[in-house]
């Protein structure tokens, strides 16, 4: 039996699976045409077809599955950014915990001076992970907090500084300017800072996540991504389009609200869930 191209109906179904997983039409079509070009067995079982799909998505994601950098600089400054409610503050708590268990001394800076109780929230995380929190009054200049945070981290010989920022929609230029200012002010103290800029993305977000990456990268020089709330969805497929277009490393994923609910990003696992091997998408495939 010679291998033939999968028929149009099967390819349509594959495309549907990808669209349902939030890859977006363009990316779904691209994966479809890759699969159509390769000569897969026409009579392939549903599982075999899904396997092919998983393999193609893995190929896109593999290059971006990268652990956190070694953080040789001291203090290594992380600026954590993203739109409202994606999980920035929680991710900082989880990461601080992880870095501390690696024997690093972590300092936190509460540069979200806007949202009600944002400072209190970070302080509670600071207590949980035993990290000092640099904070100013509500409503004060976030860049000032970041600056003081870095100064304190330098003075106390901290290994890592994590700066929490307020959520902001990427289309709000005044708020994006505020972010650019934080970066500028940090550089006054340490020209290489921030050494890492983490963009926190919510896995339930659809196509807008592409704009988020583009603009946060432009304004704050994003160096890596964390994708949160993957405990709530087997989708998060927009990450495939993001990986293809921006190639930014995905350092970790959030899988819950607890301190340990942070995992490294496994391209194959993620791809398999998208292809319908996960609990959620099984019915869609």
């Amino acid at each position: 039996l010679t291998k033939e191209k999968l028929d149009e109906d099967t390819l349509d179904d594959l495309e549907d699976v990808l669209i349902r997983a939030d890859l977006g039409v363009e990316m779904a079509e691209r994966v479809r045409s890759i699969i159509a070009k390769n000569r897969y067995d026409r009579g392939a079982s549903a599982d075999a077809v899904r396997q092919v799909l998983g393999d193609e998505v893995t190929k896109v994601l593999d290059p971006v599955a990268q652990p956190f950098p070694a953080m040789a600089e001291k203090p290594f400054v992380w600026l954590v950014v993203g739109v409202n409610g994606t999980g920035k503050t929680t991710t900082i708590g989880k990461l601080a915990h992880r870095f501390e268990t690696q024997g690093k001394k972590v300092t936190l800076a509460a540069a979200d001076t806007f949202r009600a109780a944002a400072i209190d929230q970070l302080k509670i995380w600071g207590e949980r992970v035993n990290a000092p929190v640099v904070a100013h009054d509500v409503g004060s200049d976030p860049a000032g907090v970041a600056y003081d945070g870095l100064k304190r981290a330098q003075e106390t010989n901290a290994d890592v500084l994590m700066i929490d920022t307020a959520g902001r929609l990427q289309n709000k230029s005044d708020l994006m300017d505020e972010l650019a200012k934080i970066v500028r002010v940090l550089k006054k103290l340490e020209p290489e800072a921030p050494h890492g800029v983490l963009l926190v993305l919510d896995a339930t977000t659809g196509q807008n996540a592409l704009n988020q990456v583009e603009l946060f990268q432009q304004v704050a020089g994003v160096t890596g991504l964390v994708v949160t709330k993957l405990d709530g969805t087997a989708r998060g497929g927009i990450l495939v389009a993001i990986a293809e277009r921006f190639g930014l490393p995905v350092h970790a994923i959030g899988v819950g609200e607890g301190i340990d609910d942070l995992e490294s990003f496994d391209a194959e696992d993620f791809a398999r869930a998208i292809a319908g091997f996960g609990r959620e998408n099984a019915k869609a495939a």
Binding site: I19, R20, A21, D22, V83, G85, D202, T204, T205, G206, Q207, N208, A209, G232, T233, R235, I238, E280
Partner: peptide, 12 residues
């Protein structure tokens, strides 16, 4: 619900 939600809006 977030206006930026993707395909999962239906299940949610």
């Amino acid at each position: 619900a977030d206006a930026l939600t993707g395909q999962d809006a239906v299940n949610l």
